[in-house]
């Protein structure tokens, strides 16, 4: 990291600290959520400077995109202002300050930023980079580690997303009953009818957003990206559609049943690839037995599970959005 980049990164992080302080201080939750979006972008930019392009992409899509939409959806149904507390919580402030100092104290024995002799760089990293070249042969090492070497963690990640989807549907209902699929489209619920320009432009953009989603999905082996980011982007385009045209139309395009099938199908696809490895004589999630050429097999496996991730994530995020939105309509 050159000195200029380092200074720029320090500048971004300082801004980030100021933003977070503002988030905690403000009493207006709407402002806090907007600032959260800014904080996410700042973090994403810092990640990019720290060579973590995949993570930056995800943080931007999740932190500034999906999470903002969810928070705004919740704010619309609750209240925008936070009540002022009765007294200044000095005790909490004290504890927080002490723990922060302890963590800072710990940093003085840590390997400084970028040190090549740090155990993180010296122990596993060279093996991952070498083996990705030899055994998997795709350029993006992050994808290789994510999907193959630590594919089990990623399976767990998909399960977490699926659990969140199941949980939100359990708590809030599917929303299909509230907006009564099949009922005539009411004018009230027809999205942004006062907003002609955004509506037309939004329609124009949706195909391109979808295209970007598919690019990120299928190009993830070569450049930053992959199933999760793609799922989030595709979900964003559908969410945009339902903001423009209203809940009901969006549910006509992709009905609740299809969304549920996507949630389930993605997980099952991932699991099936794992079981296929087991049946064909390897271990669970061993992709090299999927093809006569182990390297090809790895690539097939990664492709398939990335598709599984994308499908599940898109299904879950859209379902969660509908569940939130239908609460407002009901």
């Amino acid at each position: 990291m050159s000195t200029i980049t380092l200074l720029f990164s320090i500048f971004l992080l300082t801004l980030l600290m100021i933003t977070t302080m503002a988030i905690v201080r403000t009493r207006n939750l709407f402002v806090a959520v907007m600032l959260m979006g800014i904080a996410s972008l700042l973090i994403a930019a810092s990640f990019f400077l720290l060579d973590a392009a995949d993570v930056a992409l995800t943080e931007a899509a999740v932190g500034a995109g999906i999470s903002t939409v969810l928070f705004l959806g919740a704010l619309a149904l609750t209240s925008e202002r936070e009540r002022s507390p009765s007294s200044l919580p000095l005790l909490s402030l004290g504890i927080v300050a002490i723990v922060a100092l302890i963590v800072i104290y710990a940093t003085f024995d840590q390997p400084p930023l970028g040190s090549p002799s740090a155990p993180v760089q010296a122990h596993l990293t060279p093996w991952y980079i070498e083996s990705t070249r030899e055994l998997i042969d795709i350029p993006n090492v992050v994808t290789a580690v994510l999907a193959s070497f630590r594919g089990y963690d990623t399976l767990g990640e998909v399960i977490v997303v699926f659990t969140a989807g199941v949980g939100v549907l359990f708590l809030l209902g599917t929303g299909a009953s509230a907006s009564a699929a099949g009922a005539p489209l009411s004018e009230d619920n027809a999205g942004l009818r006062h907003y002609l320009i955004p509506r037309i432009l939004g329609r124009l953009l949706i195909p391109f957003i979808l295209l970007l989603g598919f690019y990120v999905q299928f190009h993830g082996e070569y450049s930053p990206g992959g199933g999760f980011q793609a799922g989030a982007i595709v979900a964003a385009s559908i969410i945009l559609y339902s903001l423009l045209e209203g809940e009901q139309r969006a549910l006509l395009v992709i009905p609740q049943g299809v969304l549920l099938a996507m949630m389930v199908g993605g997980v099952l696809l991932y699991g099936a690839v794992g079981v296929a490895g087991l049946v064909l004589g390897g271990n669970f999630l061993d992709y090299s037995v999927l093809d006569s050429d182990p390297v090809k097999g790895q690539q097939w496996g990664i492709l398939l599970i990335e598709i599984g991730i994308g499908i599940t994530v898109a299904g879950v995020l859209i379902s969660i959005f509908h569940a939130f939105a239908s609460r407002g309509a009901a």
Partner: peptide
Amino acid sequence: TYRVGGWMAPYGI
């Protein structure tokens, strides 16, 4: 013990 994905211990899970 079981190697998930067939990868050896500190590298795989």
